[in-house]
Amino acid sequence: MSPGAIELVLFAFVLLTALATAAFRDVLAAIIVFAAYSLGMAIYYAVLLAPDVAMTEAAIGAGVTTLLLLLTIAKTVRPGRDEIFESIHWSGLLVVGAFTTVILVTVTSFPEIGASDAPIVSNPEVSQYYIEEAYHDTGVENAVTAVLAGYRGFDTFGEAVVVFAAGVATMVVLHTEVFTRD
């Protein structure tokens, strides 16, 4: 499938904001551009028919992450340097360029986007099974929720534990025994 106009605009927006995030020396500027990037991604996900993911990216990627990043730089001092942009780190660019090229080479063997014969979509025993049986097996209509809390509920258990672990982690890292106050 060739990209339509919306996809092209999103493509350009996401790529530019990502580049700007990398380029800005000022951390506050980078955080704000990164929030715009996350929102662009969220819209991109929605265009690719993933409303749940779009909503999560907007609430967590653009929302909570940005808040925490802002809080962090408020707790620390921004670098008071004059340059607006980062200088280019050539050896890093070389390594990363090689890595990106490898990925691009593998991309040529990917199935086309939206192809109905891609195994991930067509696999009759997993993805198609979820579509056909999710309502019967779990009683909910949103197949994403059915897979998330039903079929792959254990992943979600692990995920909830990761969130809990992050909370415990900040307490240990910052040497406090309370989240707020006794």
Partner: peptide, 22 residues
């Protein structure tokens, strides 16, 4: 399950970073 392994690898990871910083 290979993805479930990722989730638990990350629990292990977060716990380890935390313990190092303790």
């Amino acid at each position: 399950d290979v993805f479930n392994l990722f989730v638990f690898l990350e629990i292990t990871g977060i716990a380890t970073y935390t313990l190092v910083a303790s």
